[in-house]
């Protein structure tokens, strides 16, 4: 942990944002949805530290509520990717052969694709909304987990502890998930952190295009979309949500890098 700047910095940012999000569950300075025409596009002040938007809504309150969306999308999408990706990667790596070949070809095909393109296709078929946004992003995060898990399994399946478990009659599922998984978990956690960043970025992009999270749920990407017309009158409106997206992605990327460093150092 010592001197691991990436880890400390990443964790601090994540904790800050998490607390920010957690508070918003119980309290926001103003109602994030209440409009107040008299207070339209107020610059940042003591009452509204991030100013107000085109409907006079408090931007701080909206950004706070937007963090719920970001965390929710990130968490669920990463969980989908983690569960399916780890399972596919484990099967692929442990069994090898034709199973591995087929799974990995599909994963490679998916990796060659921009997340956003798949997400666009997905919402155009199944409809726009937070649920489909999450599913699409989750599906596209499967391959990175599958790849990382697979390489861990390929390495570990030849170790003695696996052989002895096999000799003692443990079945493949037991070996895969009770014996090997705990040993290959750290790169998977790193991937989860990175996947969180990708999910937040993708959600912001989709919502910016109007094809992600729909109103009234606030989303940082959607706020940016709305802000663009008022860019000369209310520049803060376009700046604040962007800073929060960047900060979230930055936090999880640093955290992921830091975790990787930490894992590398403890292994040595």
């Amino acid at each position: 942990m010592k001197k691991n700047f990436n880890l400390i910095f990443g964790l601090s940012v994540i904790i800050f944002l998490f607390v920010f999000m957690f508070i918003s569950l119980f309290h926001t300075p103003y109602s994030p949805t209440e409009m107040n025409i008299r207070e339209r596009m107020q610059p940042p002040s003591a009452e509204h530290i991030f100013g107000t938007d085109q409907f006079g809504r408090d931007i701080l309150s909206r950004v706070m509520e937007g963090s719920q969306t970001a965390f929710f999308v990130g968490f669920v999408a990463v969980s989908i990717g983690l569960i399916f990706g780890t399972f596919l990667g484990a099967v692929s790596g442990y069994f090898g052969g034709i199973t591995d070949e087929i799974i990995m070809r599909i994963m490679d095909a998916m990796l060659a694709f921009p997340v956003i393109l798949f997400a666009l296709m997905f919402v155009s078929v199944f409809g726009v909304g937070i649920k489909n946004t999450i599913i699409a992003i989750g599906i596209m995060s499967v391959p990175s987990f599958a790849r990382i898990t697979r390489s861990g399994y390929i390495q570990h399946k030849q170790f003695d502890y696996v052989k002895s478990a096999k000799a003692m009659g443990a079945g493949p599922l037991r070996i895969m998930f009770l014996h090997i998984l705990p040993n290959v978990i750290s790169p998977i956690i790193v991937a989860a952190s990175m996947g969180f960043s990708t999910a937040v970025l993708s959600e912001a992009g989709l919502s910016y295009l109007g094809l992600g999270v729909l109103p009234p749920s606030p989303s940082w990407g959607r706020m940016l979309n709305e802000s663009q017309i008022y860019i000369s009158k209310a520049p803060w409106f376009a700046i604040i949500p962007g800073i929060f997206i960047t900060l979230t992605v930055l936090g999880f990327n640093f955290f992921g890098d830091g975790l990787r460093e930490y894992a590398d150092n403890t292994e040595k």
Partner: peptide, 9 residues
């Protein structure tokens, strides 16, 4: 970490 569309804005 910066979303490209925000950089655009």
């Amino acid at each position: 970490a910066i979303p490209s569309f925000w950089v655009g804005i």
